[in-house]
Design a protein around this nucleic acid. Structure first.
Lengths: 200, 200
DNA sequence: GAATCTATCTAGACGCTGTCAAGATAGATT
DNA sequence: AATCTATCTTGACAGCGTCTAGATAGATTC
């Protein structure tokens, strides 16, 4: 009796969620508009009424990824209130790499060539990514003031360099170059040890 | 009078060189077997007599990339003979990021998801990549012995962590997240400063 | 020198992809 | 009741990787 209505009702959201599922299952490569439409039980071209093209869809997924990551990371900062700068930094790093590990494909999309290389990032995605880095920058500034990093070095450079290190580690794991989860964490801890100005 | 002969003569090499050109021009995404064949003036399926599939072609290109990089890097080590450990390390890093910048698309291929993620790397490529890391490991060991890195930390972990940092920086540049060449170098130098055990 | 073998190349076809154009549907607005 | 507009569908096109079957010609064998 309840036949499928002509208008889906909330196709945009359905597409976003389904696409995220597909990506989580088989990586970005495995996401095609046609498969996505099929899973959502609409025609091949229906998604184009909600996203300009495939790139716009990818940007929307990445955007949601940034929202999720920001939320996690902000909570991580709160948790470090009682910790020493060293411990706080390490905690943050571990939360970060944990997000990357749990959301490998989304992370790949968020910080990957597909979106950023050829200026494909949507305006809103650019904004949200910029904001995320600003949060990181503030956090590094705070740690620098607590003498965790050399006071002489420009805060911006420290923020860029430390994030690049962190990101590189995540990439090696996600891209399948470092594959062991335990090593991943051990290397992260070593990276922290090397980066912070800790004289033992 | 000189019509094109049925047998090309050295198609494999031609394909490798042409493919490298295409990639350098428009990135990995822009390389298709069909376009490659067209440029080499052979039929669509001719490349399949020299490479099992597209993946095998990509591996062969990456392999050549490793050979080129190894050569550059080995020379860089020789150049550091007279330098202090700090200067030597920085020099090495600058040579490394310079290679990444000059060969962005090849670097992307060499260390990217396309090849490594799903176990696509050919056996010979795996071997050559492994050897490259071993060279890096030896070099780090040497620097650690010269007190550039904490003696307490395992050499392997230091090598992994420092390389991850270096790689992360290159990735951010190649993927289009950091785009300014001067910043790239400045961040690299900051990374070096942070990583080495330098008490000023 | 003739016959055979084998590496190399081509043409055709299949199923996949992103997306454009034209038309159908139905809820919302006038 | 008539019109507008957002949403959805079918058909089509060019491009992709690669499988199959067949053509070519240089090398090897007798």
């Amino acid at each position: 009796m309840t036949t499928k209505p002509y208008h889906h009702g909330d196709l945009r959201q359905t597409l976003l969620l389904t696409a995220t599922d597909i990506i989580a299952e088989g990586g970005i490569e495995s996401l095609s508009i046609r498969k996505l439409a099929e899973r959502a039980e609409v025609s091949r071209t229906a998604p184009y009424h909600h996203f300009k093209d495939k790139n716009a869809l990818l940007c929307a997924i990445a955007e949601q990824g940034f929202l999720n990551q920001n939320q996690l990371v902000e909570q991580a900062v709160l948790e470090t209130q009682a910790l020493s700068p060293q411990q706080a930094f390490e905690h943050y790093v571990l939360v970060y790499i944990n997000f990357a590990e749990q959301n490998q494909q989304t992370y790949d999309l968020m910080y990957g060539r597909d979106i950023w290389k050829t200026g494909n990032a949507s305006e809103s995605l650019q904004k949200i990514a910029y904001n995320s880095f600003q949060v990181w920058l503030k956090w590094i500034e705070q740690l620098q003031n607590q003498k965790l990093f050399d006071q002489q070095l420009p805060t911006l450079r420290i923020a860029q360099a430390t994030w690049a290190s962190l990101h590189g580690l995540c990439r090696l794991f996600i891209d399948g170059i470092y594959i062991n989860r335990e090593d991943f964490e051990a290397i992260a801890k070593t990276t922290v040890q090397l980066l912070i100005n800790q004289h033992r």
